[in-house]
Design a protein around this nucleic acid. Sequence first.
DNA 1: TGACTTACAGAACGAACGTTCGTATAGTAC
DNA 2: GTACTATACGAACGTTCGTTCTGTAAGTCA
Lengths: 196, 196
Amino acid sequence: MQKGEQTRASILHRAVSMASVRGFEGISIGRLAAETGMSKSGLFGHFGSKEALQLAILDFVVEDFKLNVIGPALREPTGEMRLRRLFGNWLDWTGSERLAGGCPLVAASVELDDQPGDLRDYLVEQQEGWLDCVRRMAQKAVAEGVFRDRLDTRQFAFEFHGIGLAFNFARRLLQDPKARSRADYAVDRLIESARA
Amino acid sequence: MQKGEQTRASILHRAVSMASVRGFEGISIGRLAAETGMSKSGLFGHFGSKEALQLAILDFVVEDFKLNVIGPALREPTGEMRLRRLFGNWLDWTGSERLAGGCPLVAASVELDDQPGDLRDYLVEQQEGWLDCVRRMAQKAVAEGVFRDRLDTRQFAFEFHGIGLAFNFARRLLQDPKARSRADYAVDRLIESARA
DNA sequence: TGACTTACAGAACGAACGTTCGTATAGTAC
DNA sequence: GTACTATACGAACGTTCGTTCTGTAAGTCA
């Protein structure tokens, strides 16, 4: 029984691009079926409902994010190196060809912030985990004596995340070619100001 | 001939709330008609197309933003006071009861970043103006000798905007009660680091 | 190979979408 | 008060939406 899993994965692969460009509410089963060369009902059968499809897409994105952004960063030895790697991976991942419409998690965060339901609950859980991941890396840098004691690591994560959001904005909406260098500079400043 | 303008304004008033919660693509003429107690066709006649309606909503929001956020800030005497007032007004405006779903301009920035058209063009123009507004206030503080010479004021605006985005994220998605104090603290730090 | 399950297509559904049309009414100007 | 226009309604258009059902291939396992 692996044919099903296979097509399901290929559907999700396409769906991520669509969600990236059109948002999670903008994906339609009919359009997705047309893009994958399937019938609506055939595609539908893999998920059972549109919400289940959306959840599967979100989960697919989250797993990809963990694999390609968080995972490699965690393999760095020090807290500071992890943070720098994490930020670089995040921005690189956001710009990967697969995600034609930019970071789907940033888009989902804005899109779902007023739409109660399982989708939102799952996203909140993951985004809290993301901020906590940043916080723990900063905490590690504190423990290593690189960042100062009494550093508010949650505040650090808040500002870290904000720089990424500003990058997404400058890059995607304004198409500012300096978006990346501005973001890198901002993170440098943030890390510098956290030092012991 | 003023009845038309009157109902048009009341329609837009409602529409802003809807766009704030459901996004610009999420507003539907049928639903908006139901909420305003009008017929679809009657409401439609005021705009002529859905895109024109969306543009009218966006314009309505932008004018409200200029009036209630930028305007009062510009009446402050110094660059630093303008920046602080601007930031406070922005966050207050975002949380106003009218905008049940949070800052519509932040939402639109994410929603429209991959949707070419008049809506996007207009939004880009306004958001570039917004960043430029921040930049000019910072430049004024430089001229006043409060901020250091050689301060990269565009970088300042980039980070300023990012803090607002992080606030929006923490407040609306995570419902973090500390969102406001984190944002205020971050702006304090930003301004402090810009001083001469 | 045979029994059985999964995977998919095709047709159809009710609802909602944006839009158009013709018509009645309310408001304005002479 | 009459003539005219702006305003709004109600019905219908063709599409697209998510979803359900039925039939038929294809895949899986004994």
